[in-house]
Amino acid sequence: MLTTASHKKVLHQLNRSFLNEVGGLSRFAGRFFNQAFRPRYEIAEFIRQCFVIGYKSLPLIGLTSFILGLVLTMQLRPSMVSYGVESQLPAIVGIAVIREIGPVITALIFAGKIGSSIGAELGSMRVTEQIDAMEVSGTNPFKYLVVTRVLAATLMLPILVLLGDAISLFGSWIGINIRGATSFHLYWTQVFDNLAFTDVLPAFFKSFFFGFAVGIIGCFKGYNSSKGTEGVGISANSAVVVSSIVIFILDLLAVQVTDALGLN
């Protein structure tokens, strides 16, 4: 008896916390698609959000990407040397960064920075009734706040990934030149020589999905924030946690899809 009761309780818990979350998020995403592509278009606010979400994230993404490229190269070097394929370092780092590490690490940092800020911002707007105030002012707050942010995150993350890749590879070039000497030109030639469209394009496309995930989850958490300042903190925090997990899941799916399409 007890077991079935606790069993039920667990199920109930699961239903509340997980399934409820998934259902709510799906409906939220549905609402996004329903509203995003019909007027009115909040273009000015969208551009402002692009600036805030994209441009303002560049210093952080740039720094981490640079260090990532540098460290990756320095860490790979000893084993590459011991296999006598040191000259393949640019090729290996290039493929690793472009295909996987660049998009995923950039997306995770993006989730940390943007997911939390969207969650907190919309959360506090919800809690202080600013969202209601917008609605009474004849503004559709979903369009004004959610659609603009989700679109900006979806479109800006790929740009950040591209720039992050470039900076990572530059960092890697520096890393190579700490111990050896490879000219800038030769380095890039080696990187490009070993890349294929199938390395670049799937990575590029999946970063749109990462950006969308960060945007929609941040907005979902913030927009549906519960009352009180605690609610804001929870929104911000769970926005980061959930979007990070979703990024990994999407990454896994992306591998499967590119595999299935024969693009690997």
Partner: peptide
């Protein structure tokens, strides 16, 4: 910012 990203692509 956007153009730089697209340029790299």
């Amino acid at each position: 910012f956007v153009l730089a990203g697209l340029l790299f692509l």
